[in-house]
Amino acid sequence: MSTVAEAANASPPVDLSAQFQPTLYHTVESGEGVALDLRDFNLWYGSAQALFSVDMAIQKGMVTALIGPSGCGKSTLLRSLNRMNDLIDELRISGEVIVGGENIYRSGVDVIALRKRMGMVFQKPNPFAMSIFDNVVYPLRVDGVTNRAVLEETCERALRSSALWNEAKDRLKESALGLSGGQQQRLCIARAIASDPEVLLMDEPCSALDPIATAKIEELITELKGHYTIVIVTHNMQQAARVSENTAFMYLGRLIEYGDTKEIFVNPKLGQTRDYVTGRFG
């Protein structure tokens, strides 16, 4: 569902100091109930290292927020979870991302099948220039599903799940581009969940939306969790505080502090986290 161009739009590689040796504080442990498990994960864009030895257990059925200043590696981390970064030249990784007991970076993994298990929603709504209906069932059509009843049933289920059904049910044949920005974003979420993924990866899904559309997406995230594991990158700290169970603070390519959202925003353990969440970052 994404293009090379989108991947190339990711934050440009930044010259990160490899000497930076921060104190880390993580309270989310690997083990039972973990959907995605990053182990000693490193990533380089050419010679520039963007992620440094990230260990991160993402809990199943919960919302995990990634926060941090621009260029800290949060989008890179998010895109590593469904190997979207593979589309970038000169990309090199080391370490593992374990999903369902398997390392998604081992050779022979079907990347297309993997991405189907990880729906992705981007900053700017990106509906295809086709009807609302065709947008939602696009992943099924790619899979070769032609049965009209199956497509219609999936379309309704996905639109209901994304809280767009009532607004869209009478205009399914109309172009998706006629929808408002917020509706388009919910359509993209519907499209992402039409293929019944296990994980939803959201890269600043509300940054282009007005407050009401944002509230609707947040409400939707709250409804979808439990059924899906959601990882959301956001620059809006209040949003992270509102929607997530766990929050990860990243800085210069490291996962600095990772734990219960309540703790991160009320009583962060590390000075760097505190300075970021309180707006003291230079």
């Binding site: 700290m237 505080a241 925003f265 009320v266 505190r274 969440v277 309180t278």
Partner: peptide, 10 residues
């Protein structure tokens, strides 16, 4: 106005 967090909120 400021949506304070962490030590500021406290």
């Amino acid at each position: 106005r400021r949506q304070p967090m962490a030590v500021d909120l406290r």
